[in-house]
């Protein structure tokens, strides 16, 4: 927690700075694409969100593994606190994908392999969050959700493989969201947004872990209070 407290102001500051610099560049000053025009700007929000959505899942699974193997409570907290952020990034990725699809494909939704995989990923996040929240005893929820995260991490590549197979057989490859060649001018806003998202994740993670720790403390105090009262009654 000390490390977390130490990096917190830096992460928060960097997040604000990168958003302040990155968003104007991505949305206003960067040049439009010769093929996609101004629509390309959506990609600067979409692509890093897709990357974050997946990376956070792997972070969550690693945390869950550490929690299950070494029973390290902090690892469990990190996993638990990551899930809503990851779900948010997959949701952002889907929304941006739909907004990009309307001008490019003429429809808000195409069963594109990447979009479909992201949608399934979003459902897996929802399942993880719902399971962790479904028990009277929060520790049981943490353990069950940790096992689910590991089952999910085995499944994510299988799901991607299956969706790709299904997609290539059902529709010819259309203009993909990320297939166009990246020029140097496009890389800058992409990297800035990627960094901003990453720092945002770290910031929110620290805040959420802090509040989870506080909630656990309150719970423990209450439990000990009940036990104390019971013992007092047994004696008196």
């Amino acid at each position: 927690m000390k490390i977390a407290n130490a990096i917190f102001p830096w992460a928060a500051g960097l997040a604000v700075l990168l958003f302040a610099v990155g968003l104007p560049i991505a949305l206003v000053t960067s040049p439009p694409d010769y093929q996609q025009g101004e629509t390309v700007r959506i990609l600067y929000l979409h692509v890093p969100a897709a990357v974050m959505g997946e990376m956070i899942y792997y972070a969550m699974a690693s945390g869950s593994a550490a929690y299950l193997i070494w029973r390290h409570p902090m690892a469990g907290l990190v996993a638990k606190a990551s899930a809503p952020v990851g779900a948010m990034f997959t949701a952002l990725c889907l929304i941006c994908g739909m907004l990009w699809g309307e001008p490019m494909w003429g429809t808000f939704w195409v069963w594109d392999a990447r979009l479909t995989s992201t949608l399934i990923m979003f459902f897996i996040y929802l399942g993880y969050i719902a399971l962790g929240d479904a028990f009277e005893d929060p520790e049981r929820g943490d353990r069950a959700a940790a096992i689910l995260a590991l089952v999910g991490v085995v499944n994510v590549p299988i799901i991607k493989f299956s969706v790709n197979w299904w997609n290539t057989l059902h529709q010819p490859a259309s203009l993909s969201l990320t297939k166009s060649n990246m020029s140097g001018e496009m890389l800058l806003p992409l990297f800035l947004m990627m960094g901003a998202y990453g720092m945002f994740y770290v910031t929110v993670l620290v805040i959420r872990v802090r509040s989870e720790l506080l909630a656990a403390k309150i719970r423990n105090a209450r439990m000990s209070q009940i036990a104390g009262n019971e013992a007092a009654q047994a004696i008196g």
């Binding site: 399934i120 459902f123 897996i124 929802l126 399942g127 719902a130 399971l131 479904a134 028990f135 009277e136 049981r140 069950a144 096992i147 689910l148 089952v151 999910g152 499944n155 299988i158 799901i159 493989f161 299956s162 969706v163 197979w165 299904w166």
Partner: peptide, 27 residues
């Protein structure tokens, strides 16, 4: 096994399991 002892086992179970069934469904 994961939803044993939860408040709303049935609906939760479908949320957990159906995404994992997609590969089998596809093939």
């Amino acid at each position: 096994a994961l939803v044993l002892g939860t408040r709303r086992g049935g609906v939760l179970l479908s949320l957990l399991v159906l995404p994992l069934y997609i590969p089998v469904l596809i093939f």
